[in-house]
Design a protein around this nucleic acid. Structure first.
Lengths: 231, 231
DNA sequence: CGTTAAATCGTACAGCGTACGAGTCGGTCA
DNA sequence: TGACCGACTCGTACGCTGTACGATTTAACG
């Protein structure tokens, strides 16, 4: 019955870019800030995975009390959103309108996208469930521009973008969740051999044991681009 | 320091197919069983999503105490695994070795796969994180066979399979998490217009507002198959 | 000095998965 | 018959979670 979520974002005001930084040390090492919170959250997520991020632990790592976080951040979900978008920032050369090799550019952009996510394996599975942040949108914008430059018409553009998105997301999510140690590999190997008469083709082509992920990604992407290229 | 997870699957013995069913009503309505647990878990997941499944609620719905579940099931994760695989069972005609239209078969299989997952939207995002169950493996086996029949050599098979897997998973996960009400659509519309000078191409082609998901899936799949087809 | 807003945090609460051990039941064998 | 046993159920309790609430501290300014 209680009225909650009245719409305010967080208690602090909206201006994020304020550049004041006094040299105060109130009692702990540094004052809290959105930036520090997000950076530390990314560290923890990298180390412990999505389920490993706990508000108390995050606060501990920052040298503050758990509830102090909530002045800067609405709730745990917001921490995820911020960490996610921060990790997807594009650090590449500015878009050159001149280049002729549009296809090479597309491949490079998508490989960079995938690499960014694989550097933070929790990010891939998180991305499709959350609202698209500014960094993702500008990656999509870039991609659209390059494809257009390559001759894809507006009528075909959405299908092309979504196809590439689907492929990259699927590949990256799968890869990110499939980290086998050597022991695991051996176990899987054995399990599979045991099932070899039920799944003969899978066994014959060693589908689940082929671990050249990067090469397979690249080859599949090439095929997809072959199919998408304007005739 | 405690030694846990000594390897036993669950306390009950392994035989699942035992056909004994006495007509007893001990105190509640029906005796528990793996089948009932899984079926009810699927119901709850359909209704409340992944985070909405609680062991206590599941037990309530089954008319039993929460801890009774644990005699049939190792832990909550096992419930997810079982629900997931149960939902991915292939209910289609048996594979006909004769058919010439291998490409039509592939499209049909993958559309069916996608449809099965979209009927239970929690399943798509869960699938890549868990070990592949028997029903997924046999779908992959089927797919491999059809592609082979279509002329794909063993050397190219894994790339083809993974490309299709990636595409289908990416498309389905994205779709499953992108369920906008009309209100949301209006809001997104507005938000986007506000950003139109930052993302002009996205705005121009209405990338995020184009909601012909089925058509886009089909077209993209066609392109991908074009690219993958042996020359 | 007093007042105010920004920022911090101790305490508390409801809800979660599940360990543990006691309980019930039906069948089997002496 | 009564003792025993394995299959199955479940009440209680523990540790852990996110976070609501309100008191508290601090910096800034009149």
């Amino acid at each position: 019955m209680a009225a909650k979520r009245t719409g305010a974002q967080s208690k602090r005001s909206q201006r994020i870019g304020g550049s004041l930084q006094s040299a105060r040390e109130p009692h702990s090492e540094q004052p809290l800030s959105l930036e520090r919170i997000v950076a530390t959250a990314v560290e923890l997520l990298d180390g412990q995975g999505v389920d490993g991020l706990k508000m108390r632990q995050l606060a501990d790592r920052l040298g503050s009390g758990a509830m102090s976080l909530y002045w800067h951040v609405d709730n745990k979900e917001a921490v995820f959103d911020l960490a996610l978008d921060s990790v997807l920032e594009y650090r590449g050369p500015p878009q050159t309108v001149e280049s002729q090799d549009w296809r090479g550019e597309v491949v490079h952009m998508l490989e960079d996208w995938r690499a960014s996510m694989l550097r933070h394996p929790w990010s891939a599975s998180l991305l499709p469930r959350r609202r698209l942040g500014p960094n993702i949108l500008s990656r999509l914008e870039r991609l659209s521009n390059t494809l257009t430059r390559g001759g894809v018409t507006d009528a075909d553009l959405n299908v092309a973008i979504w196809s590439l998105w689907n492929y990259v997301m699927g590949a990256t999510i799968t890869r990110a969740n499939f980290n086998l140690s050597d022991d695991d590999m051996a176990a899987a190997q054995q399990r599979l051999t045991r099932l070899s008469e039920r799944y003969p083709t899978i066994e014959r082509t060693r589908l689940l044991l082929d671990n050249d992920w990067d090469g397979a990604f690249r080859k599949g992407l090439d095929s997809l681009l072959d199919g998408l290229s304007p005739r």
